[in-house]
Amino acid sequence: MHSVLTRGNAILAYSLSVLAVLTFVCFISTVFIDYRTNATMNTVKVVVKNVADYSASREKNDLGFLTFDLQTDLTHLFNWNVKQLFLYLTAEYSTPNNQLNQVVLWDKIIQRGENAVLDFKNMNTKYYFWDDGNGLRGNQNVTLTLSWNIIPNAGLLPSIFALGSHAFRFPVEYTTARV
């Protein structure tokens, strides 16, 4: 009855169930944690141009340029079930064309063990701020928010909004100079 096969089978089954239980404990021990925290952000320079968007419709669309400041400390968000944070800075606004527009301007991956204290001054955006049409010029209410998507070792993938946002407006005239 105690052949190599049955013993191997028993060891394999036992170690697999121990692994499964440990993974579940890892998941359940962190699932109720509140991952919100403060972040302060500000825009420094804001201009808008009207140029052809060759990546999409080839029509003249509004293209915003901005630089921003960002301060936050995310060190305490890391625990044994946080493998990585995916930070992204979103601009949210509404235009006559579209009720809701969301454009990610900048993102950053912070893995466990890397520096999670952020203090950026006058940063450039990582992605172009194209509008879907001509709704940026003179737009009175564009909101910048920082969010993070938590990548666990095993478990849920929540997206968390930082406490704190910044609202700004675009100038009423297009800039024609190089930016």
């Binding site: 995916f86 064309n97 809701l100 527009n101």
Partner: peptide, 21 residues
């Protein structure tokens, strides 16, 4: 992939662009 840009109209139609991290 992850959603990078999104435009939603009043009637609920939505179009979006994605990108891999």
């Amino acid at each position: 992939h992850r959603v990078l840009k999104l435009h939603e109209k009043e009637n609920g139609t939505v179009k979006f662009l994605t990108k891999g991290d």
